[in-house]
Design a protein around this nucleic acid. Sequence first.
DNA 1: GTCTATAGTACGATAGAC
DNA 2: GTCTATCGTACTATAGAC
Lengths: 213, 213
Amino acid sequence: MSTKERIIQASIELFNRHGERAITTNHIAAHLGISPGNLYYHFKNKEDILRHIFMLYRQHLDTQFKPLQDDVEVLSQLTHYFDALFELMWNFHFFYDNMTDILARDAELKADYIQFQQRLFEQVKDIVLVLNNKGIIAIADEDAAELTHMLKLTVSFWTPYIKARRQSGELNRADIYQGLLKVITLFSAFATDAGREQLAALKQTYQQRQDNI
Amino acid sequence: MSTKERIIQASIELFNRHGERAITTNHIAAHLGISPGNLYYHFKNKEDILRHIFMLYRQHLDTQFKPLQDDVEVLSQLTHYFDALFELMWNFHFFYDNMTDILARDAELKADYIQFQQRLFEQVKDIVLVLNNKGIIAIADEDAAELTHMLKLTVSFWTPYIKARRQSGELNRADIYQGLLKVITLFSAFATDAGREQLAALKQTYQQRQDNI
DNA sequence: GTCTATAGTACGATAGAC
DNA sequence: GTCTATCGTACTATAGAC
């Protein structure tokens, strides 16, 4: 792995463990056993590192959140989405902790973030509408947008929410599964009788994964 | 107003406007036209200020979130709750932006926060259960806790969520109403046929207030 | 209770040698 | 590509005069 990549990976790890605010460029360099000067050879500044991490974030969602396909079973596609959400919430939770600050410091990153989230919103809303058309959920047109907002809000801020309820100790994988179950509950609240069973099966899948940790 | 109180009020105002991270003790003093030394005469440090603000936060919830009373109409009590939530989300939104950091820096504040949130969780869950018993919503026992988490999550993080969708400009009152409508949508998702009408009325109330801004 | 002045620290970032 | 050394800056917090 190149030094540049190692800096990215170490940054993600340290940001997630100690928080973005607490980790300085010197910490990152020290953690890798390289000099601060070397870090600054590879990155213009701390914001530059954050922009590269955001690119990984975006890339993950771009590759994993394709629209629902008609010829594949819904439940297996939903499972794929939830697996991707798990990775997202696990790998980038530091970002949601300090989102307002990080974006306030870097207007360019903020513009990119907003643009991406607007696109993502439409993609998630499409999924909601397809689930409606397939009879998994029954939701009024105006509520589809509301539900989409709530889904995004929950995925984004479940990790800060749970961290604020814990006296000490790090976030663990079981916490993420708890969050995914909240997302499933959101869908279930709008489920049809037929859809309720399928979502219950999905719920059971992730409850088992949580128990197996 | 005493200097101590003025410092508290100025801090809340500046934190909300520019973010807790961006505002230093010097900024607060300069904003009030007092010296940094004077500020430090009244408060031990920045964390001390934050603890006092948290006391106001707790006090607001303690006085406004009494349990549902049986002899008063439900809808008017819900309206009272939502009015209180509006004040909360409007006055303390800076806190949710940086919650993880603020709590990570101050173990004592974190302990107080956690204890308070645990109590608050039970209070909100009681409200959910009473609404269930009154036939406004119909929710399984296990889902009551899930809904309570989602209600708290939404109230806490709606403001950071909305800030991250806006290129520039401050949070405004209409944004808060949007968040309250999300909370109402959460209740509506579990509403009975009878409850749906009452919640629709509640929704209309806050949509009108939003339009009247 | 309030001021001025400043000590102390930590962080971001760069220059210049190898 | 990597290092050492360091500068400038900004912030927290305190000392001491009034």
